[in-house]
């Protein structure tokens, strides 16, 4: 199962995703898709420094389904994190989509 690494930014708590190259981005579509467990493990090793440098907290990988160039989290919780509250379509990342 493909995965994406996400975290929360320390300064404002906003959900961020890890892009290839190591930047933290706010939209899932800009995130790096990690195709397998070994890619996830390698990337997790690289984010350690961002945690130690206190840029991000709560780092975790989550499952995504990739269809063409569309990426969709598999679990509802991750869908809500990637978009925003289902009850407030104008709040969260979905507002910018």
């Amino acid at each position: 199962m493909s995965q994406v690494i996400s975290a929360n930014r320390l300064s404002d708590g906003i959900v961020v995703f890890r892009a290839s190259g190591g930047a933290w981005v706010e939209q899932l579509r800009d995130a790096e898709i990690l195709p397998d467990a070994s890619a996830v493990k390698a990337a997790m090793g690289l984010v350690e420094k961002d945690v130690l440098a206190n840029h991000v907290i709560e780092v975790a990988a989550f499952d995504v389904a990739v269809k063409g160039d569309h990426v969709e989290p598999v679990h509802l919780r991750d869908k809500i994190r990637a978009k925003g509250p289902t009850t407030h379509p104008d709040h969260g990342k979905q507002a910018a989509l």
């Binding site: 320390l10 300064s11 708590g13 440098a53 206190n54 907290i57 709560e58 969260g92």
Partner: peptide, 26 residues
């Protein structure tokens, strides 16, 4: 915390005692 002197684990208890949680979005 922002300067890195406190780790997240050490800070968590203080932020919680002052009503600050980390939730899904923020």
């Amino acid at each position: 915390r922002l300067s890195g002197e406190l780790t997240e684990e050490q800070f968590r208890i203080h932020r919680l005692m002052n009503g600050v949680y980390l939730q899904l979005h923020a």
